[in-house]
Computed example of a mutant assay.
Amino acid sequence: MYLQDIYIYPIKSLGGIRLEQAVLEERGFQYDRRWMLVDRDGQFLSQRTIPQMALIQVAVADEGLKVFIKNQPEDYIIVPYRPQTNDLIDVQIWEDQVKGQLVNQVCDAWFSKILGFPCQLVFMPVSTSRKLKPKYAVNGESVSFADGMPYLIIGQSALDDLNSRLNVAVPMDRFRPNLVFVGGDPFEEDHWDKVRIGEAIFKVTKPCARCVMTTVDQQTAKKGKEPLKTLATYRTVNNQVMFGQNMLLLEGEKVKVGDPVGIEKK
């Protein structure tokens, strides 16, 4: 088994970026979900209710994140790596309320124009600690603005298995993994406790429960019923549809495409 793909999603719920290598941090990959869009009440925004967010793409540039509309790349904005304000606001992500740092008014205006309603872009500063639930943490780890865990891994064979059951195949971007590996049986990752990728070791914490976001076509922002409808027929546990495994980092500084993937403990 080896690592086929690495993905980061710098701004939560916007387009992801494939990398050849990535820096590992406790909260997740460097730059992964360190920014997030919120409404006037500080509530996080996502494709679950605003599917057109899928049409906004992010790229890593020298001066900051370049954010643009997928079919209109000339309409873009640069999000600085360091916020240009010192303003902290309360933001809500699921049951967690934490402090987010406002980036700048230019970004707020651009995203508000694109989405059609007032919103703000926030950054997660080092001072903001969003702790994992104690039952999953090993050393009191924190997580970014990701839904719940620092890392998500999926086997390519799991997607191949799903696509063999669908009339129209879906790409991996429906599931927003951080790490995709090749080899092993479909859903091999269900049985892991610890896994080594290159020189890094990860603890598998829990299966990833999937939602309607998997039904949003990432190129058109159109919603359908698949692949959730088919997945539900054979991947439902306790009324939740499972696909992929959440993980946290135990040790390691980086991973790269091609790294061997080995099971440390089942």
Score class of each variant (00 low, 15 high):
M213S: 09
E25D: 04
A61D: 09
K131E: 06
Q43T: 14
G183M: 10
D75L: 11
D75Q: 12
S157H: 13
L248M: 09
F111P: 00
D62K: 09
L159C: 10
S127Y: 11
I77E: 01
F187I: 10
G198A: 02
L3F: 01
L88I: 14
T215L: 08
H191N: 10
R40T: 15
P186W: 03
A146C: 14
V180N: 03
P83C: 05
F175N: 09
G183P: 05
A169H: 09
T49E: 04
I154E: 00
G183Y: 06
V261A: 03
W192M: 15
V255N: 01
Q52C: 00
T215N: 12
G262L: 12
R48D: 02
F123C: 10
Q218E: 07
V126E: 04
A158L: 08
R34K: 15
I89H: 09
A54M: 14
N167C: 06
T230W: 00
I6T: 07
N167W: 03
G183R: 14
G16C: 01
P10E: 11
I89A: 10
L24T: 10
V212C: 05
V255A: 07
I69G: 03
D160Q: 10
K223C: 13
P134E: 12
W110I: 03
L19H: 06
T215G: 06
V138M: 07
T233E: 02
L88V: 13
S144P: 04
Y31T: 12
E20Y: 03
D32T: 13
A59G: 08
L166Q: 05
Y234S: 11
L159E: 08
V216S: 02
F175Y: 12
R176G: 08
C211A: 07
Y31R: 14
Y7K: 03
A232L: 05
M53W: 04
K225F: 13
P150K: 14
G252A: 15
I11E: 00
L37V: 09
D185M: 01
A158Q: 09
D161N: 07
Q84N: 15
Q72I: 14
D160P: 01
G64W: 04
M242Y: 08
I197Q: 03
Q4S: 08
P118S: 13
Q92H: 12
D32S: 12
V143D: 00
P150T: 14
D32Q: 12
D108L: 08
K206V: 15
T233L: 00
